[in-house]
Each structure stands twice: as C-alpha cells, then as structure tokens.
Computed example of a mutant assay.
Amino acid sequence: MNLKSLIIGELTAKLPIIQGGMGVGVSLSSLASAVAREGGIGVISAAQPGFNEEDFETNTKEANIRALKREIKKAKSMSNGGIIGVNIMVAMNNYEDFIKASVEAGADVIISGAGLPTTLPKYTKGSSVKIAPIVSSARAAKLMCKVWKERYNYLPDFLVVEGPKAGGHLGFKMDELLDHEEEPLDKIVPEVIEVAKSYKDEKEIPVIAAGGIYTGSDIAKFLKLGADGVQMATRFICTEECDADIKFKEEFLKCHEDEIKIIKSPVGMPRRAVHNQFLKDVEEGKVKVNRCFGCVKKCNPKTTPYCITRALVNAVKGDVDHGLIFTGTNGYRNDKIVKVHDLINELVTEAEAAI
C-alpha cells in the first residue's frame, strides 16, 4: 500500500481518508466503525442522533445526548482501535453540549462546520480530542487560526476544506454552486495549504480536501496538490454498513444527475438534495410544520416551509416520499451497494494507480 498515512498530532490513520459525517442518522456507529476498521477515520453525525429514542419527541435534547454518547462508545468498541470522529454543526442548538458529550464519550476527533466554530476550543480544553473547522476559503482558514490562537492559544489540529460540490451546509453563494465549469476546490486547497504552512514553526496543520471527491483518482488528484487527506461522504451512503434504511440507499441507485438540485435549507445555507416527491410537495405548499424540535438556531417554525428534522428522520427510516435526501454532486453515480471493505480497497487501488 503506497498511500501515505494521515497524521494528526499523535493520531495516525493508516489511510488518508475521512468519512464525512451525514445526518440525520446516515452515519452512526455502524458506518463510522467500519471505516475506522479499514484504516480511515469514521465520523458520526451529531445531528439528531436520538431520533430512534423512545422519548425523542418529548425529551429531544436529552435523547440526542444519550444516543450520541452511546453511538460513539459503540463505534469505538467496534473499530479495532481505529479513529472515531464526530461532526457537529455550529448551527445546531445546544452546540456546546454536543461537544462536551463527544469528549466525555471518548471521541478522537471533532469536525465542525455549518458556520465558523469560533468557540470550539473552549469546550475541548484539557482533553486529547483533535479539533478541526470546516472552511471554504483561505480567508476563513486564516480567520479560524487567528481567532483560536488569540482567544485560546490553540491552533486547529487539521483543516477540512469543503468545496461547492459537497452536500452539506455550504459556505458558498447560490450562483457559485450553480457554476460547475471549473473546480474551485482545485484552487482553494493550495491556498489553504499556504495558510497551514505559515504556522509550521508552531504546529503541523494537515489540510483535508472535501466536496465532490468520489473516486480513487480524485483522492490522488488532491494528494498531488499537497493535501494530506480527503473527506468523502456521499460515496459511503451505498454501503451495507451505512446506518440508513435500504430504501434510502436505493434512492441513490435510481437517481439521475438532473434530479440532484441545490436547495436552501431552514438553516439558511444552500444544500444539495435529491429532488424527490417530498421536495415537489414542499414546492406546492403541501407540507405542514406540526412540531418544532429546536434543532437549528436560525429556523423559525412559523415561517419555515418544512421541518428539516422530520424530513430527514423520515428519509433515513425509509419513508423517502416524505423525506429529505441530501447528497453531494456525485450521488447519482452510486450504482450498487457494497461493503465498506470492498469500497476502501477499490478507492485505494485506484488512488495508488493514479499516483
């Protein structure tokens, strides 16, 4: 195996592959531990992980904290010593509680985006957990390094650079997302690498490329550009170990490229989703908000067209016609359901050949 390891402080992942966090419930302990066993970094999403708890409807915050801790501990026990991370969105209510719960449960890594995680080091101080902001520009990377250093005397343990082809809450304007003629990530990653290098006398800050990375050739491309690793989410959806219902995965097998659309979520940030029956119903005003779960800070239940929690829970449980299905730009390329082991082998073989 010729791919270099990903070194983050005293942590070493055999492979430079981070599985991106996907909520609600798409990446929990099953997927994260499977990736970690293969030598990558497996990531659990902290977005409403308690959706299957009996008291989720009546005791949402506590159900989520309880479930998150359980999923982290379960993933750690199943990972054969592999690295387990948690993705926590800044836009979530009770943000600091999810960070503290992740640290208490033994997460190795916390990755935080959907806003700039300016306070993240405050809640991980004194722990061994490695922390990384998700940034979409060199300017944002500089800002995070500056703010963390000035406020907490701490620099990021690594930087995740997310381009406009990702499925998550994206730090790009709508028109930037609609223009795919060039690959901005090609330009952004080297610029962020220069930011990281400017701190090399104080700390080695690995740079991870994310957004639209689908094949081993894509991995090789960004490693050649100087990235220390890649983050991939959408590619892991159609695996046996992915925590989502089989009907959720089958939507990707049926999906065509022109069915993947950019939408604006209740958080206010653009996201990419499969344009299914649910989104058609939203457009026609057929969806009602019957209950607010208080999941994100900027969502107003009086004005939002739909409850994002309810829509995502429906989807991950298999009620896809009443569910929201987020995806990266390459979601339509999934054509079969495979084991994580086989997918990783395919990615590594392709990457090594390309390198």
Score class of each variant (00 low, 15 high):
F222V: 09
G211D: 08
T215Y: 00
M144G: 03
V207Q: 02
V161M: 03
Y199S: 05
K200I: 10
G211F: 07
E181D: 14
G211E: 09
D179F: 01
K165N: 15
H180L: 14
P156C: 07
F158Q: 06
I208N: 06
I219V: 15
A233S: 15
A220W: 01
P206W: 04
G168V: 14
H180W: 00
L143I: 11
A227V: 12
L159M: 12
K197V: 04
M174P: 01
K187E: 15
V161N: 03
I213R: 00
E202K: 12
I213V: 15
M174W: 10
G211N: 05
P133E: 09
V207S: 02
V161H: 00
W148I: 07
V207F: 01
W148L: 14
A210V: 14
V135I: 14
G167T: 12
V147R: 15
C145V: 00
V230S: 06
G229I: 14
H180M: 09
K130V: 14
L170S: 04
G226F: 04
K125P: 02
R151E: 15
N153R: 13
K224H: 02
I131G: 11
F158A: 10
V135S: 05
P190Y: 02
K187Y: 04
E162W: 12
G229Y: 11
A196P: 05
V147A: 10
G212S: 08
L159G: 06
I188R: 01
G226L: 02
I188F: 04
K200D: 01
I188K: 05
E162K: 03
I188D: 09
E176I: 10
D179C: 02
H180G: 01
Q231Y: 11
W148P: 13
Q231D: 12
G168C: 12
C145M: 06
T124A: 11
D179S: 11
V195P: 10
